[in-house]
Design a protein around this nucleic acid. Structure first.
Lengths: 347, 347
DNA sequence: TTGTATGCGTTATCAG
DNA sequence: CTGATAACGCATACAA
């Protein structure tokens, strides 16, 4: 393996001079610099990070620890956001996932420690509360898409499920819907509660009563082994005599079943039923016809900002909120129109 | 930072002895070993990988280089397979993705080199032919889900799209379908060609003629910016007077649109049209009602086997085929039945 | 502007 | 079985 010494020999200078050139330090003649650079090119020298790290206790490496995120389609964008930031800022990424095992998690923290990682990004697939199993390892950490159970002083950055659901609800109301169905997410997810709460509160603000709302549970059970009631729930809602003119789906994935239920009953979307999703999971939201109006979870930004935040933290800047929330963006597509009854009665 | 020397001091032995214990080398008294292990625990010592690497030029680290894989829902399972293998075998994973940029790719190879990575897993999101942009870096590499353009001696491991499509076609034929529609994948994907070829050849073997088959292009254009004709193509097929009794979809995602097209036309699935997908992209295939019969791409195994293969390669074992293909598994669910006309005519 | 000596945490050598 | 010491590739202090 070609080292700094061999380059020095080839260029006829000392190792320190080579080091200067590599690290762009001043006080090197243009001439010397060129000589060294040529030698580097000729020998194909590439610096050895490990050796560098051993001296300067900054590895310029971030660790990503995930639960199932790398396993699942949803939140990979978080990882992409992190990677892009790391790429742009010369950091390396070490990645590992726990698969839900607490033992494995302790091992991972040790592994991170043994690589002298500068900081950790703790990422979860679903927006949820977690209890990191750090063992006795202590590395600066930013939590992404989750918040710590214990109120430890861990920084976190999360999506604003509440605001997203509120915007979606308003959007429906402003389109004239007065009977709205709601298919709930699995209650074990943080988003389930936040989104439902926003829906309930917002409709109440608009003067809706209990009878205007039909709320059904779509899924329950542990992640990966859920019971799925979405199709049945949607079918039931839509066959009711006072059926809702719009349905709000816990997420985009569940909206597939709502579409199918509606179409199977001969209902047209959006003329007979408007539908909105949540997440903007493109594979689904753009495959549905008409394309699905939904709220985009700020996954990519969560990753980007999280990495950025970790970096400022590492530079000793502890200012800023310890819990940070990023807004969801309403994506208007074609699955919502004014309800027919409503349009008719106001003509 | 607590080092091997501090442990040695605490245990009252030499650093080499500590090293022996850590690496499980023989020739250490049980008594000494326990003394050392206690010191390690007490001090919370964790080995420094960087320092270790500097001596023993094996980093025990694999690099994963992806195109857009970490960006997309599809093939994350490949990464999971790799991670699981790495985890079970004490390897660390360094991950980076090119986002399609060739410049970036060269940088990544350099970065890998500078970390003295043992080997690289080159992973693509879609099954395709690639031309790795290695620069002048040379690291043992296994390609996953893709094959090299130039016939360099790079090992590759790929899914058997042909066999998967053949099995699916047979399945349809064996269920009595004699008029089959086919919605093609984007032709820039390797799978598009292989799957279509299998479909054509298999139907021919069963004595189908051109008129029995309706083949339409579902998507085209560069990845991420495709033109999408699936809904229109399916609608057209299904309104034809001699409409197919079954449709084979290029993949599961496209099947969403086929479902919607069918249902919008008042057709029932599978009674009026049977539908099969490809990929077993669960989020979709299990959300569709009836659940989608499809062929599962062996993503997880691709990752697992790929990592395993790279490891044997690194141990100097060059035997085995340079191109290895893993079968797709037919996943039988509820979107296929015998065609009504067929059943009737044989009663 | 350049070079020399030393140390980082580990493993390897070889003598005890 | 155990330990003293060198060596890995680089950065840092200090000297020239």
């Amino acid at each position: 393996m070609v080292s700094i010494v061999s380059v020095a020999k080839a260029a006829g200078v000392s190792n320190k001079t080579v080091s200067r050139v590599i690290n762009g330090e001043p006080y090197v003649t243009e001439e010397t610099r060129e000589k060294v650079e040529k030698a580097i090119r000729d020998l194909g020298y590439i610096p050895n990070m490990a050796a560098r790290l051993i001296r300067s206790s900054r590895s310029n490496t971030f660790g990503i620890i995930t639960d199932y995120v790398s396993t699942t389609p949803y939140s990979v964008d978080i990882v992409r956001g992190i990677q892009d930031w790391a790429n742009a800022n010369g950091k390396t990424i070490l990645m590992a996932n726990t698969g839900g095992s607490s033992e494995r998690e302790v091992e991972i923290w040790k592994m991170f420690q043994s690589h002298r990682i500068d900081g950790v990004l703790y990422v979860t697939m679903y927006h949820r509360v977690v209890d990191p199993d750090v063992g006795d390892v202590r590395i600066p950490t930013v939590m992404i898409n989750c918040r710590p159970q214990t109120s430890e002083l861990l920084q976190s950055i999360e999506p604003d499920d509440y605001q997203g659901a509120r915007d979606l609800t308003r959007y429906l109301v402003e389109h004239g819907h007065r009977r709205i169905g709601y298919v709930r997410l699995n209650p074990i997810l943080l988003g389930a509660e936040l989104r439902l709460e926003a829906f309930l509160k917002t409709t109440r603000e608009f003067g809706f009563s209990e009878e205007d709302l039909t709320i059904r549970l779509g899924m329950e059970g542990s992640v990966g082994a859920e019971s799925n009631y979405v199709f049945a729930a949607a079918t039931e809602m839509l066959t009711h005599k006072d059926r809702p003119t719009a349905i709000m789906s816990g997420n985009d994935e569940m909206a597939i079943q709502i579409y199918i239920a509606a179409l199977s009953l001969g209902l047209r979307i959006p003329e007979d039923v408007s539908i909105v999703g949540f997440d903007d999971f493109r594979t689904v939201s753009k495959s549905l016809k008409p394309e699905l109006t939904t709220a985009a979870l700020p996954y990519y930004d969560l990753g980007l900002r999280g990495a950025e935040r970790l970096d400022t933290l590492l530079q000793g800047d502890e200012s800023g909120p310890s819990q940070w929330v990023l807004p969801c963006k309403l994506i208007e597509r074609d699955s919502v129109s004014r309800p027919r009854a409503f349009v008719t009665s106001f003509r």
